[in-house]
């Protein structure tokens, strides 16, 4: 291929590079910049000088000028919610999807059928199915309470003023929904990984007539470790950014729970960020989004470091 391609190639890339420059690279720099501004007004572009780290302080410490209101929302609601959702859903969804993938891989009859069934939650609308789950978990007439054999147990909404929603029940409901929604992708990735495993490992084990569970635990799982690491990192990032599931399940205010049992809403970090954009506090939203980015980076680096020793390539 001749060198005259040189400038032509850049023409082919131009649309992508221009769009990325305007809508991806510039915004990243601009968000960092805005996060340091004092009282930024995004409609006019005006601000009253640099606040430097004051926006971060306002968002993260109780001693801000705002009487701690934002601190409460981040440190007492958004961050605990996000961390709890992550800690619960990431390992559980990985384990469940791996067991399903291993089981699916071991059968022949109806394999395609089950594969299709398990993929269905992927092709759904997070808001729509969130609404379905909130009907399933409904307090007075919900099928979930029905199956448990109890009445009037509030999971999502209060139905009367005297009702209270226990935070931990609400957390159960949202984690259940998130795991349900995240299984298909993980199963698909694990199945892909299983297909790539060289059959000779199994042949060796078969000759030795090792029991099935032992083959799964000692051969398959270690050979799946690249997929496990990939799933851990991507689903950590995904669950740190949980938002649509909260809106779908609890509505636009993110729920209303008994404050004696935990955070008063299921608002997450991303929820807080969009809420601040909505309230025209773009500088706080920027600071919070960079804070979130740093957390995600830290987790990703730690996971990579820890797993270096454990992943077999």
């Amino acid at each position: 291929m001749e060198s005259k391609n040189n400038w032509k190639a850049w023409l082919y890339l131009a649309p992508v590079l221009i769009l990325l420059a305007v809508f991806t690279f510039y915004p990243i720099i601009n968000t960092v910049y805005v996060s340091f501004l004092k009282d930024y007004n995004y409609t006019t572009g005006t601000h009253s000088g640099f606040a430097w780290f004051d926006n971060y302080v306002a968002v993260l410490t109780p001693y801000s000028e705002l009487g701690g209101a934002m601190y409460e929302k981040v440190m007492k609601i958004a961050l605990p919610n996000t961390l709890l959702i992550t800690i619960i859903t990431v390992p559980l969804s990985i384990i469940i999807s791996m067991v399903i993938a291993l089981t699916l891989n071991s059968i022949k009859i109806l394999k395609k059928f089950f594969q299709t069934v398990f993929f269905m939650p992927y092709v759904t609308n997070a808001i729509a199915i969130g609404m379905v789950f909130s009907v399933i978990f409904s307090t007075d007439y919900g099928i979930f309470n029905n199956l448990l054999g109890v009445q009037n147990l509030a999971w999502i909404y209060r139905t009367s003023a005297s009702d209270t929603v226990n935070y931990w029940r609400a957390l159960f409901a949202i984690c259940f929904y998130i795991i349900w929604h995240s299984l298909p992708y993980k199963i698909l990735i694990f199945l892909g990984g299983l297909q790539n495993i060289d059959a000779q490992y199994y042949d060796a084990a078969k000759i030795d007539s090792a029991p099935k569970w032992k083959i799964a635990l000692k051969i398959t799982v270690p050979l799946l470790s690249p997929q496990i690491l990939y799933m851990m990192i991507t689903s950590f990032i995904g669950s740190f950014k949980e938002y649509n599931s909260v809106i779908g399940l609890f509505g636009k205010d993110g729920g209303n729970f008994d404050v004696n049992t935990g955070p008063s809403t299921m608002q997450t970090m991303v929820f807080f960020i969009y809420d601040q954009v909505d309230k025209n506090n773009v500088h706080y939203a920027s600071a919070a989004s960079i804070f979130l980015f740093l957390i995600i980076m830290a987790f990703t680096v730690i996971q990579n470091k820890v797993s270096k020793k454990r992943v077999h390539y």
């Binding site: 040189n6 190639a9 991806t24 915004p27 968000t31 805005v34 950014k241 960020i273 773009v282 980015f293």
Partner: peptide, 30 residues
């Protein structure tokens, strides 16, 4: 196509997929 910096640009683009969209949403909205 063969051009100078092809692999560098491609790696750079792949790397930028790591950055959470929320950071861009705010500025894009502005």
């Amino acid at each position: 196509l063969n051009f100078k910096g092809r692999d560098l640009v491609f790696t750079f683009l792949l790397g930028s997929m790591m950055i959470p969209g929320e950071m861009m949403v705010i500025s894009n909205y502005i």
